[in-house]
Design a protein around this nucleic acid. Structure first.
Lengths: 194, 194
DNA sequence: CGTTATAGGGTACGGCTCGTACCCTAAGGA
DNA sequence: TCCTTAGGGTACGAGCCGTACCCTATAACG
């Protein structure tokens, strides 16, 4: 029927695109190999020749649709930086991207191999570095004690936000909560390390 | 063969016990309806007459095997209380119980109905109250400012610990990390709210 | 320009699981 | 004693994963 027969890179991209769309529409549970193959206009052979598992395809599809550029706000105040950072993260996790990511993380809880793949892909390390940079700038401005430039301080806000997602089922958090995390936890913590 | 035929409560308990054992041995993914039925010495009819989904059975089985008595340490110092609390939680989550719970939580990420069931069963609220009680005692001793008796302060240590599980794949955290959470995050945070 | 190894396409299948349907029989109350 | 109820046995449809097989388009290579 179709005159052309796609090969190599072109076919691979088509499969990834199809898988990403399935992920977005139906989540990881709904991302069936047959449906991906059908949507890509190919068959499962071409998929299994490239990825060993369904899960591997899921991860590849996710990274295909998401090249999350990490935000790095510099508003001039520690409070402004932190709040902006949390707002960006909240927006990302509430987006369809975030839904796919959370779904994949949940599904990968069984398979440790995938979990590590996801983790190294999630950019947790660079996230830390951004927060540490914020703290360093604040310390240089005299806005925070030098002892506040610390790994645990840097990771706490995001961890609290993430836990907030877990407590609510809803992955989106009202802005008021973000303000609360900054004013009631992050800034007191920074002050308390004088 | 078996002369007796179990009914009602007796059969229900047998099914729950079988499901709980399957959960413990093979996780939620391995808890097959057929296997539960076989292990309980019955068939799927008896199960589906009681629980509509596999997931509902999973939750029922979990709550059947876990009636987690909430710890409530009172060591005389805020640091001691917090550390003891984190140690207890860490032990619980590292145990087979915890493995089952984490597995269920992951599996329930898709089905919001189950997620709420799990949440209301997890006792997050009473956890908060225990931490608030610790803070109140510390404030009464003059060990902490009154402003530290605050919901966000109370929930932060457990949230950080939980996030620590997510960062490592491993659900068990070395004791040193618990000490770090208390000394580098919790106590500075309490101090910072003066 | 012809030949040949490679990779896609089509299709079918085995194995597993969920959830349902039937039919028969033990249990226990009326 | 009879009769409603609930268990037991079994089979089945449907969906999915991962594999196998066979045929053909494609591209590299002589």
């Amino acid at each position: 029927m179709s005159g052309r027969r796609r090969r190599g890179e072109e076919l691979e991209q088509a499969i990834l695109r199809a898988a990403a769309e399935e992920l977005r529409e139906s989540g990881y549970a709904g991302m069936t190999m047959d449906r991906v193959a059908a949507r890509a206009g190919t068959n499962k052979n071409a998929i299994y020749r490239r990825w060993p598992h369904r899960a591997a395809l899921g991860i590849a599809a996710y990274r295909h649709l998401s090249d999350a550029a990490l935000p790095n706000p510099d508003t001039g105040s520690l409070r402004g930086d932190a709040l902006e950072m949390l707002r960006q993260i909240n927006a990302t996790w509430s987006s369809p991207h975030g839904a796919v990511l959370r779904d994949l993380l949940a599904a990968a809880a069984d398979e440790p191999e995938l979990l590590t793949l996801m983790r190294e892909r999630s950019g947790a390390d660079s996230m830390d570095r951004v927060w540490l940079g914020m703290l360093e700038r604040a310390a240089a401005r005299g806005e925070a004690p030098a002892a506040a430039v610390h790994h645990r301080v840097a990771t706490t806000p995001v961890m609290v936000l993430r836990a907030e997602y877990a407590v609510r089922g809803n992955p989106s958090v009202p802005d008021q909560v973000l303000v609360e995390i900054v004013d009631e936890v992050f800034l007191p913590l920074v002050r308390g390390r004088g």
